[in-house]
């Protein structure tokens, strides 16, 4: 079968785009007008607490769920109207480890999945299987959570898809295997032009790989920025404030912004250009004592804590 090239799209340069994507379960919003933009070739980490809508986003991208409104595209392919074509571009590791097919051996299941992808790289699948210490003759029904997850990773990577959708891929893996998986992922990205959209609770694991971060909270995408922007604009400020100081309205004091015991000193995570933030604070009588840059995880988590203001 021949390969088609990238279709014309209004979102060129993006591997994944969503437009005002909304989904409700019962009365509860799972996604609320989400505008996701994952650039081609990026490693985009989607973070958020449980129930924030990460898995729902992945399922909509795989057309396993229908959005209530809005749309989603994978390389310009509408996931609702061109579901099979869109899925052909994706290596998907779902949140659940149970793949079904319990009577099959791991080797047979890999053979089964391989039949669906003309780009399946048998040598690479074998290499991944060895690296992840998977025994091909074992029955899928008898696998532990970690083994099932490793099998899913092989199924997702071995056809070298242009897009990897990894929903908590290291969940259920022991620390050693987790490390090995991340090393394999790094090698994979070096060998294969791939865009990765990954959701994880272990953001620190992605510290070296991630170049974009999106933060979902209560179904809303509250932040979406590249790594440099995140590091440059999200910073921790230690400021000294006068007696009876009122925070400027654009810097609403977050609930957990920490104050020193004498209540004259405040620690704050703020978004914005450092100089303009300092100037704005100075106008209110506050004095910036120290500015520290945050790691990827701390910066991203600040959005979840509701600590980030400005």
């Amino acid at each position: 079968m021949s390969h088609s090239t990238h279709p014309a799209s209004g979102d060129e340069g993006f591997a994944v785009t969503t437009h005002a994507l909304s989904k409700r379960y019962g009365g509860e919003p799972a996604l609320d007008r989400v505008e996701l933009r994952v650039p081609e070739g990026a490693v985009y980490v989607l973070i958020g607490p449980n129930g924030a809508g990460k898995s729902t986003t992945f399922k909509i991208l795989m057309n396993l769920e229908r959005p209530d409104s809005g749309s989603a595209e994978v390389f310009g392919l509408d996931t609702g109207r061109q579901g099979p074509k869109a899925r052909a571009q994706v290596g998907y590791v779902p949140e659940r480890q149970d793949s079904g097919y319990r009577a099959m051996t791991c080797g047979r299941l890999l053979q089964h999945v391989a039949a669906y992808y003309s780009t399946w790289d048998h040598a690479y699948a074998e290499q991944l299987t060895r690296a992840l210490d998977l025994r091909l003759q074992r029955r899928v029904g008898g696998l532990s959570k970690g083994e099932a997850r490793r099998l899913q990773l092989v199924m997702a990577l071995a056809h070298r898809p242009p897009l990897l959708l990894l929903d908590e891929p290291t969940d259920g893996l022991d620390p050693l295997v987790r490390k090995r998986v991340l090393a394999l992922l790094t090698e994979h990205l070096a060998d294969t032009p791939t865009t990765v959209l990954i959701s994880t609770h272990h953001v620190y694991e992605m510290e070296t790989l991630a170049d974009h971060v999106g933060v979902l909270r209560d179904g809303r995408l509250v932040a979406q920025l590249d790594r440099d922007e995140l590091k440059r604009t999200v910073r921790r400020y230690r400021i000294e404030v006068p007696e009876g100081w009122e925070s400027p309205p654009e810097f609403r004091v977050a609930a957990d912004a920490s104050r020193s015991p004498n209540r004259r000193e405040l620690q704050w995570t703020l978004v914005g250009d450092e100089r303009s933030v300092a100037e704005k604070l100075a106008l209110t009588g506050a004095r910036v004592r120290e500015v520290t840059s945050l790691g990827l995880e701390d910066a991203a988590l600040a959005f979840l804590d509701g600590e980030v203001t400005g």
Binding site: M1, S2, H3, S4, T5, H6, P7, A15, E40, G41, F75, L77, P84, K85, A88, Q89, Y101, A103, M104, R108, H112, A115, Y116, Y117, S118, T119, H159, P161, P162, P193
Partner: peptide, 24 residues
């Protein structure tokens, strides 16, 4: 660097694989 999109499988390949998988 424009990505090359992967194709979907042929129906007869899918049927053949489903027959094999169901055999198990």
């Amino acid at each position: 660097l424009q990505p090359v999109l992967h194709s979907t499988p042929r129906p007869r390949d899918v049927l053949r694989e489903q027959v094999r998988a169901l055999g198990i």
